[in-house]
Design a protein around this nucleic acid. Structure first.
Lengths: 209, 209
DNA sequence: ACCTGAACACCGTTCAAGT
DNA sequence: ACCTGAACACCGTTCAAGT
């Protein structure tokens, strides 16, 4: 029944989930599809385009009812527009989506480096920041800053997980591994970073020039 | 006079500066040194170790008289310890060092992902944050958050520069290229992000345990 | 101790030729 | 239109054997 672009993407995502980015080669992908490597290039421009599509897929379910913002008091640092809650919620959702797929942050980083603003959640983020009162160059800058933080933090988590899987390192770099699986500490670290941004946003420092 | 670890590192750095990370292969490195690829493995464990050493080299001159903090008013968001100025200065210095070497942020990111805290400037950053009044889990979290932002932002700058070099894209993705070479806009974007962090640090939001 | 030669097990991409 | 076969130009790493 011939090869389709959709099954290439689906199979690629499956390899990513099950084996990680290091195992996602065009040749391995072709083998899993029972086809010659060259056949892929009829349906897909090159590996980079494929990774870009995968990045979109990884984030496709993210946007967090972003239109709905809670105006009620959330007892913390809130921006002028009361959308601090929405921003935090969006950030946590992006992280959750990235963590669903092995090396997800790395894949999205590759796509984002080549084409900043291309990703949906980044646009949503900028919109929220605009609603919070930021003007046009600043909203974009802030959105990308938050994105860099999220991608860096989650990439670090996932790389560490890869290393643990490979047996090259134990959790926390020497800490006690109690195996209880209770929230990891990574959650707290991530939330702290997000709060840092949100607190900063409520102040709106003057930019020089 | 035989091969030395030092000249391997020096030559690798030269390839990085002149041609970028994509051209830095063990085989290319061996060729430039007039030696067989296998010879490198006598002096260096593998490519990853080499990249780690390069990351240190890229950042070696960074630490920004970090001991010296200006207590005088700097008219902005300052932490309790008056070290907001030092933190900003350190962040700008890290960026400057990364920009000296083509794909410098990418290389440092690779090293940092495998071993967070290993990098000198990250430690300096944590120390400054501790001086600013942050406790022990938080100072480390904040230091890594700032690091992720810096690496992500500069990596984006450099990837864009690579694409421009390759002629695959023009500046700013459709903007007017006036060729005046005046500060790029990237400087402003970067400073804005750093200020965001600094403003956030002066507030110290409560983290949910 | 330090390096060569040669191999092992891979890559991404292209493209004539087939159907 | 869609795929195969085969090639081109590479990778990182290992390791017997040489000096």
């Amino acid at each position: 029944m011939s090869l389709s672009r959709q099954q290439i993407i689906d199979t690629a995502l499956k390899i990513l989930r099950d084996y990680g980015l290091a195992d996602l080669s065009m040749r391995r992908l072709a083998r899993d599809l029972g086809v010659q490597p060259g056949a892929l290039y009829w349906h897909v421009k090159n590996k980079q385009e494929l990774l870009g599509v995968l990045a979109e897929r990884i984030l496709e379910n993210v946007d967090g009812g972003a239109a709905a913002d809670d105006v009620a008091g959330d007892g913390g640092a809130a921006g002028p527009g009361a959308s601090a809650g929405s921003i935090r919620r969006l950030a946590l959702e992006i992280r959750r989506a990235l963590l669903q797929v092995r090396d997800g942050a790395e894949v999205v980083s590759l796509a984002q480096a080549l084409d900043p603003q291309a990703l949906g959640p980044v646009i949503t983020l900028r919109r929220l920041l605009a609603t919070a009162g930021l003007g046009e160059p600043q909203a974009g800058w802030a959105a990308r800053a938050v994105t860099h933080y999220i991608l860096g933090a989650v990439a670090e988590e996932q790389t560490q997980a890869d290393l643990v899987r490979a047996g090259l390192v134990t959790r926390d770099g020497g800490g006690d591994d109690d195996g209880s699986g209770a929230s990891d500490g990574a959650d707290d670290a991530f939330n702290f970073g997000v709060d840092l941004f949100l607190a900063g946003l409520s102040v709106q420092p003057a930019s020089q020039s």
